[in-house]
């Protein structure tokens, strides 16, 4: 019986028998199906995943004709983080010409809409210059990051302090207040960047601070889409379900906490979002087959119901990619191939 070489979610190498591989694939899809109340993968889909993991190659890819769009977020931040000391326009050119990026995002190193607001007129000329010297579609993006609106980083009482004291209503009121302010900041920055010629506005890591983050993003998208019907808005998520920090927060009469990707995308569509970027988190203690089978189950359910393009988040710790700074190509390429071939997604 063949032995399959794969990894745990933390990147550690692991060997499995064919039987163990199939057991992990079945357990992964079952976990997602139970959590999301969605269909598990079919026998044929599991067999396809089995085949992908059984391929004896380090790097695998899709069949010709199945290629999808490859995008990068926050590249102008990440290139500096790895010690490449180029300015942001050079960074965009490197991604366009050398990395072959299909879309790029200009962003500030302080990657939240709140700090962008006071410096937006300094960001606009950078975007305008970048747009002159690149031809890749260019987003301007940041995180809603509602954590920056509560003390000590912002004006509102910190719900994390109020909640343990039993002041649940106070905590909820604070979350509600952060939404109003965040919407103003997102819309303010997005209007400016749209006026400067951005091809799109990217709201990244949405939901990182719970459902207030998601609500603010939906509200901002709704306002922007009504004001500029032609604007492209991308919504990239932070985690697989909306963390219920408030518990009762709603948008358009729908409770947001606990929503999984196939539910999130329907609200995104309703708000006028153009491209949706769902996330599934990697469990570092489980195997790559378990993680990938699980992630694909969530993503397939999302892609099946979506009417807008889906660009699945694939990178360190998400989309069944291992939690490593530079994840191994055997995992990344298998996850990418499987996502594209099984989920019929539109981009990575």
């Amino acid at each position: 019986m063949a032995t399959i070489l794969t990894r745990y979610g933390d990147g550690t190498m692991l060997t499995m028998s064919e039987k163990e591989l199939m057991q992990d694939l079945e357990a992964g899809t079952q976990d997602a199906a139970e959590r999301g109340n969605i269909p598990a993968l079919s026998k044929e889909e599991l067999a396809h995943l089995f085949d992908i993991f059984s391929l004896p190659y380090n790097f695998v890819s899709v069949e010709p004709g199945n290629e999808v769009v490859l995008t990068y977020d926050a590249g102008t931040l990440k290139i500096r983080r790895v010690g490449v000391n180029v300015d942001r326009i050079q960074a965009l050119q490197i991604y366009e010409k050398i990395m072959g990026a299909d879309t790029m995002e200009l962003c500030h190193v302080d990657y939240s809409f709140k700090p962008i607001k006071p410096i937006v007129t300094m960001e606009q000329p950078i975007l305008e210059q970048a747009l002159l010297s690149t031809h890749v579609p260019l987003f301007y993006g940041a995180m809603p990051n509602l954590g920056t609106y509560t003390q000590p980083d912002g004006p509102f009482p910190n719900p994390s302090e109020l909640m343990p004291m039993g002041d649940i209503e106070g905590a909820r009121a604070s979350y509600d207040a952060t939404v109003e302010e965040a919407v103003k900041d997102i819309v303010y920055a997005a209007r400016a960047m749209h006026a400067s010629g951005a091809d799109g506005i990217n709201l990244d890591t949405v939901g990182a601070a719970g459902e207030a983050d998601f609500k603010a993003s939906l509200m901002a998208a709704d306002i922007l889409k009504k004001e500029f019907p032609e604007i492209c808005i991308e919504l990239g998520m932070a985690g697989e379900f909306i963390l219920g920090m408030h518990g009762e927060m709603e948008w358009e009469g729908i409770r947001l906490a606990g929503m999984y990707p196939h539910e999130q995308v329907k609200l995104a569509e309703k708000a006028g979002v153009t491209i949706f970027g769902p996330v599934v988190n990697t469990n570092t203690s489980e195997s790559s087959p378990w993680n990938l089978s699980r992630a694909i189950t969530f993503m397939k359910a999302c892609c099946d119901v979506a009417t807008i393009p889906i660009h699945v988040n694939m990178g360190m710790g998400v989309g069944a990619v291992t939690v490593n700074d530079h994840p191994p190509v055997d995992v990344v390429s298998r996850a990418s191939k499987a996502m594209v071939e099984i989920c019929r997604l539109d981009g990575l």
């Binding site: 959590r35 343990p164 649940i168 719970g210 219920g244 920090m245 518990g247 009762e248 906490a257 606990g258």
Partner: peptide, 17 residues
């Protein structure tokens, strides 16, 4: 239930109490 998105932080805090 919290880990599955079925129960939320206020509920968790109240249960803890």
């Amino acid at each position: 239930q919290f880990g599955r998105g079925l129960l939320f932080l206020p509920g968790l805090v109240q249960s803890a109490d």
